Amino acid sequence: MIPFHAFAEVVAYAAGAALVAGGVGVGLLYALRARSITTLLAVVSAATVLATVAGIVTITLKMLITDHDRSVTLTVTAIAGLVGLGVSLVLGHRLIAGTRALLGSVRRAGDDGRFVPPDRTLPAELDELAAELSAAYARLETARARERTLEASRRELVAWVSHDLRTPLAGLRAMAEALEDGVVADAETVRRYHAQIRAEADRLAAMVDDLFELSRIHAGALRLSRRRVGLAELVSDTVAGTEPLARAKGVRLSGLAHEILPVEADAAELGRALRNLVVNAIRHTPEDGGVEVVAGVERGMACVTVSDACGGIPEQDLPRLFDVAFRGEAARTPGGGAGLGLAIARGIVEAHDGEIGVSNAGTGCRFVIRLPL
């Protein structure tokens, strides 16, 4: 058995030689840190072999073994080192090939925005990176598609708003010029012109308010003052506020809440969304038709439905009904405006973490607002 002091001396010499070789390897890694992975792996392999050889040489000299034994030991160590170096080079080549294949896929994705992972087996880390890149490019494509849709909606909105502004402005100008030039002189006509001017001004002000509200929604600047609100009270207020319009149109309007349903919401904003739906339903329901507003619970969520008798909406128009400025065969917006009412309703409901949808039901449509209880 080797004495302890001799064993400790061997360990000390071997550790010293290994530390010197390791220090040289670390220095080379730092100096070559910008080179390829293959070069770095070769340095690691060479440093390992060098540390082993240095330790063996030091130990054999200390132990005074024969030259033959020393030669055999060094030869075996060198062969093992060369094999390790070869394995390191093969591994480095595989890593570089996988990295370059992944880089090529990224560069090709820059042309059309679609990322296609390399059709070869990659190391686990590179394969995980490829999966993350695929998911990231998919999210980017979704964002681009939404941006294109929003841009198309903005252009369509500008076109509709320009058209809807031009008509009342032309009427306002004509009536103002008639009053200014004295073309209209009798008191009855003057009063009628004044009333029309006031009505058109109110309509334009409402359109500007809608545009401002929609811009806040799209900019994420809609600030909600949430408090506990009863849906029964909200339905009652909405029905009371729209009853004059329904009476003038000859439409039966009713509201019903099956139970007291408290939700955390901004009463003013949520009331505006519901009012948009009810006014929309009244305007598209024929005389003697009915509009019903019902609050209840569906699938664990507070639910408000607005059912009308408009005759239904073409199925192909249903998915786009809440888009900005969308108009199907018949506009589904309050007052036949610029297509903002339903878009505003959707923005407000979604800001409350809710859902809004529409479907054909019976002789008309059924608009549904769902909110967390």
Rank of each mutant, 00 (worst) to 15 (best):
A187Y: 08
T189Q: 11
T189F: 00
V190M: 00
R192D: 14
H194V: 13
A195N: 15
Q196N: 08
Q196H: 05
Q196D: 07
R198F: 04
A199T: 11
A199R: 14
D202K: 07
D202Q: 12
R203F: 06
L204M: 12
A205Y: 02
A206F: 05
V208H: 06
D209C: 03
D210A: 10
D210C: 03
F212Y: 09
L214K: 04
L214E: 11
S215P: 01
H218Y: 14
H218R: 14
A219D: 13
A219S: 09
L222H: 03
S225A: 06
R226L: 06
R228M: 12
R228F: 02
R228D: 15
V229A: 06
G230N: 11
G230K: 06
L231C: 10
E233F: 04
E233H: 08
L234S: 04
V235G: 00
S236E: 15
S236L: 02
T238K: 01
G241T: 12
G241I: 10
E243I: 05
A246R: 00
R247Y: 03
R247V: 14
V251G: 07
R252L: 09
G255T: 04
G255E: 01
A257V: 11
A257S: 13
A257W: 08
I260P: 11
P262E: 14
P262C: 07
P262Q: 15
A265H: 10
A265S: 11
D266R: 14
A267S: 13
L270D: 01
G271N: 13
G271Y: 03
R272V: 08
R275G: 09
N276H: 06
A281M: 05
I282K: 10
R283L: 11
T285E: 07
T285D: 00
P286T: 05
P286Y: 08
P286W: 02
E287S: 08
D288E: 12
G289M: 10
G289H: 08
V291Y: 05
A295T: 03
A295R: 01
G296V: 06
V297I: 15
V297F: 10
E298M: 07
E298S: 14
G300F: 00
G300Y: 06
A302D: 09
C303P: 00
V304Y: 00
V306R: 10
D308H: 10
C310K: 08
C310V: 09
G312Q: 11
I313D: 03
I313S: 05
I313Y: 10
E315A: 12
P319W: 01
R320Y: 12
R320L: 06
L321V: 15
L321Y: 02
D323L: 02
D323R: 06
D323S: 10
V324G: 01
A325T: 03
A325S: 15
F326C: 01
G328P: 09
E329V: 09
A330R: 15
